[in-house]
Design a protein around this nucleic acid. Sequence first.
DNA 1: TGAAGCATGTAATTTGTTACATGATTGG
DNA 2: CCAATCATGTAACAAATTACATGCTTCA
Lengths: 169, 169
Amino acid sequence: MTPASYIVLGLLERYGPGSTYDLKRRAAQALGNFWSTAHSQLYRTAETLAKDGLLDPTTESTPGGRERIVYRLTPMGRKRLAQWRAQEENELAELRDPGLLKLYFGADPAALAPAQAAAHRRQLQAYEQRKHEDDGAEPRGPWLTLEAGIAHERVWVRYWEGLAATTDP
Amino acid sequence: MTPASYIVLGLLERYGPGSTYDLKRRAAQALGNFWSTAHSQLYRTAETLAKDGLLDPTTESTPGGRERIVYRLTPMGRKRLAQWRAQEENELAELRDPGLLKLYFGADPAALAPAQAAAHRRQLQAYEQRKHEDDGAEPRGPWLTLEAGIAHERVWVRYWEGLAATTDP
DNA sequence: TGAAGCATGTAATTTGTTACATGATTGG
DNA sequence: CCAATCATGTAACAAATTACATGCTTCA
């Protein structure tokens, strides 16, 4: 069980049964840039989970006559997800920022900082807009997560802008 | 060329020639919890880089009579590293925090937050101590990176403590 | 002198990414 | 009705993690 497994389980629980393509869209929309996964990975993960009895796959045809596999959580899958959720978490996230890595190994801040600051400003705006659009109807988790994203983007913006300022003029 | 490649190149540039084991130690010490890599990965990466002519491997014997391979940067390796450093970076880091993922998918904040807050407090302390020990002799990159780490840990601590407070009693 | 842990490496397995394919739908 | 793009998937490849293995050192 990797994080990707729980993403699949979680998305199915929250938004109901769906095809892998649905999962892909949901993941992009919901987790967005806080935890991305390639769609081919979702395929494999879903298959594996189905093989393990955590998902129940059924083949349906679309209006267009194409077939697709729709997955739904089995009781076991539901249970597994709940267990994970209840488990205390002790892993810490790593920063793993490619820009920061460059900086660490001696990149010139003046060259790096402006672009990074701009990118993070964009991301921050996107998150803030999303928070604005939130109508409070969704469960609490996504909103809390958004908050975290915003807080971090703010720090990044401040950080890189600071770096740009001290080296620029 | 993956991030791991540049880590190997960068560590060799900064601390001079060394065996893979040296690299492992350096990586753990220097990059620590901001970008971790398994030691077996360093082995493979170093091999590949040597095969590509970016590193020059020489077999030496330790006092104990064991053999080990010491790598040093070739001019090409040096150049490649410099190129990477000069390249503008446009990738953004993802948060990818396992705790946050749980929260997203509905974990109970009251159960999650205290442990997370504590873990981040520890990490913050470690970073701050390190900053304290810095004598300014090292190049600027590591110090700047430390700053970033501290800023982020502060945000995390505030975040999880806030969550713990609002849900607790 | 035996156990713990440091130093050194390899192999197997799992994950993750990139690239390729191709039928359906829709907007121009 | 053609091009773009959505929907759906597979295959090949690259990277990362886990597990295994084992000779040295050191310290009790």
